[in-house]
Amino acid sequence: MLVRAVSLGETLVLMERFDFETMLKSVEKYRIIYMPVSPPLIVAFVKSELTKKYDLSSLQLLGCGGAPLGKEVAEKFREKFPNVEIIQGYGLTETGGGAARTIGPDEMKRHGSVGRLSELMEAKIVDPETGEALPPGHRGELWLRGPTIMKGYVGNEKATAETLDSEGWLKTGDLCYFDSEGLLFIVDRLKELIKYKAYQVPPAELEHLLHSNPDIADAAVIPYPDEEAGQIPMAFVVRKPGSKITEAQVMDFIAKQVAPYKKIRRVAFINSIPKSPSGKILRRELVNHAHSGNFSKL
C-alpha cells in the first residue's frame, strides 16, 4: 500500500496509533479519498454515531480485506455512504501483495467475493483431508502459486516445508471456494472453524448475522469446549447503548437463520471486542477469557 501510494505521487496520512474518532477527524482535515480497511471497521462506519460529527464527503473508495465482509454490512454501508465504493481484495504477507481483487462495478456488487485472481497468479482449492483438487463451488483450502509468492520463512525450514510444497504451491490456511465465473470467496480461516460434532462452523458467518441485529454494536464468535459435541459456538456480544438484549434473544435470533448445528449455544456480554491495530478480532484472547470465566476485563 505504501509503495503504491509513493509510486503514484499520492499524499499519505499515517496514524501512530489507531483510534476510530481520530481517523474520522483525519478524513475531514486532510480530505482523504481512499483508505485500506478491515470488515470490523466497515461495521464501525455503519453503526457509529460519530460519523455524523465529521465531514466525510471526500471519501471515494475503501479497500477492504483481512476477513470476509458480510452482505448485510456491505448493504447497510452503501445505504449510509452511497458515494463511497468498497473494493474487496485478498492477499497475505506470504503472497507479496494482493492475490485477488474486485475490478469494476459488477464485481464490486458480488457480495462476499474478493474478485478474480491477480495477473500471473494460479490457484486451486484443495480438500484439507485428502489433498485432492476440488471443482468450482466446493469449499477447501486455497493454494496459490505465482511470481510474487515468498521463497520461504527466514531461518525456519520446518515452517517453510509446512507452508510451501515441492511444486511451489503456497498453502494459505484459508477455507475458500471459486464460483463458476472464477470469482473467489473467502469463508474463514481453517484453524478458526468450530468443530461441532461432525460439522464445521465458520465464526465469520455467525458474526455477520450478529452484526445485522440492531441491538448489537459488535460481536465475535469462538469455539467453546463441550463434552458431548467437542466444541460449541460461543458469542461475545457488545450491546448498543440502551439495549437490553438477553442471551436467549441472541441465540433465538441466530437459530432462526441457520442450520441447527450452527446455532450459538453460549453468550457472554462484554464492553468491547479485543482487536489488533488493523481491526482483526483477537480470538485467542477471547478463548482465554472464556476458559477463565473472567469477562470483566473486556
Rank of each mutant, 00 (worst) to 15 (best):
M150W: 14
I125E: 04
V13K: 12
D127C: 10
G293I: 04
K171G: 03
I42H: 05
L117C: 07
S276G: 02
L193I: 09
V3K: 14
K158S: 07
P233M: 09
Y261I: 04
Y196V: 08
K280L: 14
P274L: 12
G168N: 09
L117K: 06
L144D: 10
V84I: 13
L170S: 01
N294L: 13
M15A: 09
H211T: 08
A268E: 14
K25C: 08
P225M: 03
Y177E: 13
L41P: 00
T148I: 05
L175D: 14
P105I: 12
E72G: 03
F295D: 02
E72M: 12
A255D: 13
V13H: 15
V84H: 05
Q88G: 11
K263C: 08
M1V: 05
D188H: 03
R283E: 04
V258Q: 07
S113R: 01
Y177H: 14
D19E: 14
L142I: 09
D218F: 07
E181Y: 09
V3G: 05
L175N: 11
D215L: 08
P147V: 05
E72S: 13
I270Q: 01
P260A: 00
T172W: 01
S57L: 02
R17A: 10
F236I: 10
P105N: 03
E79L: 13
M121G: 07
S57E: 11
Y261C: 03
S113E: 04
L184N: 02
V250F: 11
D215P: 05
G293P: 10
L92D: 06
G96E: 06
T163A: 07
V6T: 12
A255Y: 11
K275T: 13
K124E: 02
V237Y: 00
N83R: 14
V73T: 15
A99Q: 08
T51F: 10
T163F: 08
L142K: 06
M1C: 09
N213P: 01
F20P: 04
K29Y: 10
E141I: 06
E141D: 03
R17E: 15
G70M: 09
S166H: 10
A161L: 13
K280T: 15
G131A: 06
L190M: 10
F77Q: 09
A67F: 11
Q88D: 08
N213V: 00
R266C: 00
E228T: 07
R4S: 11
V237I: 13
E141F: 10
S57Q: 10
I86D: 07
K171F: 08
S272E: 14
V250R: 02
A99N: 07
G104Q: 04
L206S: 03
E181I: 00
F236E: 06
